[in-house]
Amino acid sequence: MIVSRRRLLGMGAAGAGGLLLGGCDALNADPAVRETLGHAEGLTMRAQRLLVGQALAREFREADMSPVFRANGSISVEDPAYRALAARGFADWQLRVDGLVQRPLALPLSAIRTMPQREQITRHDCVEGWSAIGKWQGPQLSAVLAMAGLLPAARYVVFHCADRMEGRPYYESIDLIDAFHPQTILAWRMNGQALPIAHGAPLRLRVERQLGYKHAKFVMRIELRDSLAGLYGGKGGSWEDARGYQWYAGI
């Protein structure tokens, strides 16, 4: 059988095309490929922190705010204990701060409201691609951590939440660089009103400079840890464990 060069090339191209389409998902599933690609996350984090340092996220004017701030992810909580707290306007709610701290805390909402406050109008960027600009108010996380006093081994701040994702309690984590950033606050007010349940009442994390899934809602407990290993899926957050999102979400 005589095959012309032209024809051979055509067959080659068709074969390569088929391989490409079928091969993409095979490559995508290959653990070695995923591990290699995953190295980019650490590279991105180090590069961004080197370039950006402690720079503040842009703060906007009231006129720049989104007319409607989209509520996304968990917008309600099933847990009966949480519902009982919500029914009483979170009057009995307390934020626990524990783990690698010198003084474990239990802070009622009134204590959080009377601490020195920070108000910021910032852009919230969802991993899906949309953005909304809103006004947030609350104490800096650094002030709460200072009240508790970190033990020397503390490296990560874990937020345990009242909502659930795929049957497991929701959690998120950040490291101390972001925890002590001036714009990292525990927001109990949004757009000038008490934080609505759809946006994480009574308290949500604002970690500006990272994507929306890091901004844990319905925060019940803050735990200081030396490592994220051994906690649920070990990847430092519900979306990280369940879907494979990057732990560092600066991009």
Binding site: Q48, L51, V52, A55, A57, S131, E208, I251
Partner: peptide
């Protein structure tokens, strides 16, 4: 320009582009 961290460090970039969206 879509990276929230880069936008914090280099606001001029996202401004030149007209905003993140």
């Amino acid at each position: 320009g879509m990276s929230p961290a880069i936008d914090a460090g280099f606001p001029v970039l996202v401004d030149l582009l007209g905003g993140r969206q």
